[in-house]
């Protein structure tokens, strides 16, 4: 089934083909988990939300328009599932900025530095609005177009451009003390 297009797999999965659904899940698992983590922060919550998203997509596969890309359709459902979960959580567990974000710098221990950098990046992301961080991650990490991200977020393309720009700028300012963050990994 590796060679089949998403729309074909979606049709088969809708007709009850478990393997087709499994293939779609395998294709989109990394993106869905990253997106859910972008919104929720906590890895366990992210996995729960990503799973909710996949199952909701399975229930509503009949509504998927096969003439349109499957990724944005699925990720919109995953994003909604993550946002719903975050709202249900009520108490927002904002990750505090780690001390090393302010002082930053590259130490001798490369692995430890990378771990701290990842922490710092997640903390910096959590300072952005949900829409900005989703826009940045979908654009710079997942490679979606502004138009496709607009479908995921249900906002105009121009709003996505603005979110990507301002989100990037805020991230760079927050990570400013990591002089060479873009060379760390």
């Amino acid at each position: 089934m590796n060679h089949m297009r998403d729309a074909e797999l979606a049709a088969l999965a809708h007709a009850g083909d478990r393997r087709a659904f499994g293939e779609l899940v395998s294709r989109y698992t990394p993106q869905a988990r990253r997106l859910a983590r972008t919104i929720l922060g906590d890895p366990d919550d992210a996995d729960d939300a990503a799973q909710d998203g996949f199952l909701a997509a399975l229930r509503h596969l009949g509504r998927y328009d096969p003439t349109r890309p499957f990724g944005p359709w699925l990720l919109r459902i995953v994003a909604n599932a993550a946002s719903d979960r975050r709202r249900r959580r009520r108490v927002r567990t904002a990750e505090p900025l780690p001390p090393n974000l302010a002082t930053g710098g590259v130490g001798a221990d490369k692995a430890a530095d990378l771990g701290r950098l990842n922490e710092a990046i997640r903390a910096a992301l959590s300072q952005l609005s949900e829409r900005q961080r989703v826009a940045v991650v979908l654009f710079d990490v997942e490679g979606y177009s502004h138009r496709e991200i607009g479908e995921v977020l249900n906002v105009p393309e121009g709003t996505v451009r603005s979110d990507v720009f301002h989100g990037r700028r805020a991230l760079r300012e927050l990570l400013g003390s990591w002089k060479d963050w873009n060379k760390e990994s």
């Binding site: 478990r18 659904f21 499994g22 899940v25 395998s26 698992t29 990394p30 988990r33 990253r34 983590r37 972008t38 890895p43 992210a46 996995d47 990503a50 799973q51 996949f54 199952l55 990378l114 950098l117 990842n118 922490e119 990046i121 997640r122 992301l125 940045v136 991650v137 710079d140 990490v141 490679g143 990037r168 991230l171 760079r172 963050w181 873009n182 060379k183 760390e184 990994s185």
Partner: peptide
């Protein structure tokens, strides 16, 4: 691409295969 790479490293969760099995 630089920002994308560090964001990917920071957000990627382990064991996608186990997660896929759980969803299935």
């Amino acid at each position: 691409t630089d920002l994308g790479r560090v964001l990917r490293d920071a957000l990627t969760l382990e064991d996608d295969a186990a997660f896929s099995r759980r969803v299935a």
